[in-house]
Amino acid sequence: MFEARLVQGSLMKKFMEAIKDLVKEANWDCTGTGISLQAMDTSHVSLVSLLLRSDGFDPYRCDRNISLGINMESMAKIMKCASNDDVITIRSEDHPDNVTFVFESPNQEKVCDYEMKLMDIDSEHLGIPDTEYDAIISMPASEFQRICRDLSNIGDSVKITCNKDGVQFSAQGDTGIGKIALKQNAVIDKEDGQVSIELNDPVSLTFALRYLTFFTKATPLASTVTLSVSAKNPVAVEYRVDDIGYIRYYLAPKIEE
């Protein structure tokens, strides 16, 4: 059988919110390592990849590797039934037709049990090679969310330019141009609230704001976001989640014809 109990159940609610608008259905792959998911959006422009390590659960039991084929909208609806301070347990048999979500209140006075039918999903797994990125930008996740929101008022795309001066996000539309420049903070240690840039080569790439905005739904999961940018390659946007794992998004760039 498979059983994973997450004491901080609100994390599962947040992971759900971070993927449900991008992906309609996906396999949650459960192994001894933990729970992972990789799925593209329906237009094959972006990809989400997440890992919830087994040691982030208490307890975690996985007798046999299984894939839980899940409709995200249905699971998101069920997750909304959990309170923020509930403990969430995910449970299924070795050859599952359905999955059970159990929500326990902290004082154990209320226990909710939701059973959901599984789907047979023939998913395509993409191999993402290790890449040497031209620039790796770390910044407060809330700052990145704000930039995406503000520039969405100006245009459909954002041009991310990174050089020795810092990083610039710019958008252009019918009404004009918007530019937001961030300088690297002078700090020795990388801390929350800081902008840090690891620059190998100056780089400039354009991305659809619509998708970056979907990615920022992960903001409640982490204080910092990392953007890994490389010439003419997809950008990797990563939110590391304390004590359990990460959610990463990849987005193909827009390229001049």
Partner: peptide, 14 residues
Amino acid sequence: TPIQNDLQEFYAIV
């Protein structure tokens, strides 16, 4: 205007 690439232009299905 720049055109949007497909992710599968970059990553192969494994």
